[in-house]
Simulated scan of single mutants.
Amino acid sequence: MAIWTNVRVGGLIDISATLAVALALGTLIGAERQYRQRTAGLRTNALVAVGAAGFVGLGMSLNANVGATQVLAYVISGIGFLGAGVIMKEGTNVRGLNTAATLWCSAAVGAFSGAGYGAEAALLTLFVLAGNTFLRPLANLINRIPINERTTEATYQVHVTVDTENRDLIRDLLGEKLEAAHYPLRDVEVLDRGEEDVEFVATLAATSIDPVELDAVTHELEKADGVSYATWTSSAVG
């Protein structure tokens, strides 16, 4: 049987070593994720690293470097599907991106190991651990910095609720006030709010604003006849 004729002691020792390195390094990455109580923890990262090492090692056994390169392309795309499974969207918040990126890095560690580059695999592991550990305080520090609307790029919208009788007048007034404040309009959407009211949603062409100026614009709009509500909102640019 071919399964027995392909058995080589030297080959078994080599693949055992590469899988052991992948398992050990994947376990190190996974241990940090497990400690942080992430979705993909110790076992997942270890298995991803071992699986990547196994596939790349198989490719090398079948067709040397060409085979490893061909298999590696499929490993990368396959890990992309796996990473998508840990990304969750809750309202406007997206969770799991860092976990997915860590799985991707675990696969790279395994690929290095499977190709016989153990030292490079260990070095990459150190960089992954550094990224997930030492960059955390910096990320927390940046998150605590107050947001400056003047320098933050975002999509800004002005919302004005008005009765249908004054609809056209307020629409013109909205454009005039924003133009006077040097915030040109990109688009104006009209939404029905019952039988007697409509809401204008004006999207600004500007990607950064002065909150005081926009507050002044909405305050002036609220004073106009027929306007029951005026405010502005922002959403981060993707």
Rank of each mutant, 00 (worst) to 15 (best):
I29V: 12
K89E: 13
N63G: 14
V66F: 12
L62C: 07
N45S: 06
Y35C: 09
A73S: 14
T44Q: 05
L25G: 01
Q34H: 10
V75N: 00
L72C: 08
A31V: 13
N63P: 07
F81Q: 10
T39Q: 12
T39D: 10
F55P: 00
Q34N: 11
G67W: 04
R38P: 03
I76S: 06
V71C: 02
G41F: 01
A84H: 11
A73L: 12
G78Q: 06
R36G: 10
A31Y: 14
G59R: 03
T39C: 10
N45I: 02
G59Y: 00
A49Y: 01
F55Y: 06
I29K: 01
V86A: 05
A24Q: 10
G26P: 00
S77C: 10
N65E: 14
E90M: 13
A68C: 07
K89P: 07
G30L: 06
N63D: 14
V66Y: 11
G78P: 05
Q37W: 12
L62N: 09
L28E: 04
L82W: 06
F81W: 10
I29E: 01
G59H: 03
G51T: 03
V66G: 12
S77R: 09
M88P: 06
E90C: 12
M60R: 11
G80V: 08
G83E: 06
M60T: 12
M88Y: 14
R36E: 13
A40E: 04
G85W: 06
L25T: 05
R33M: 03
A31K: 12
R33S: 03
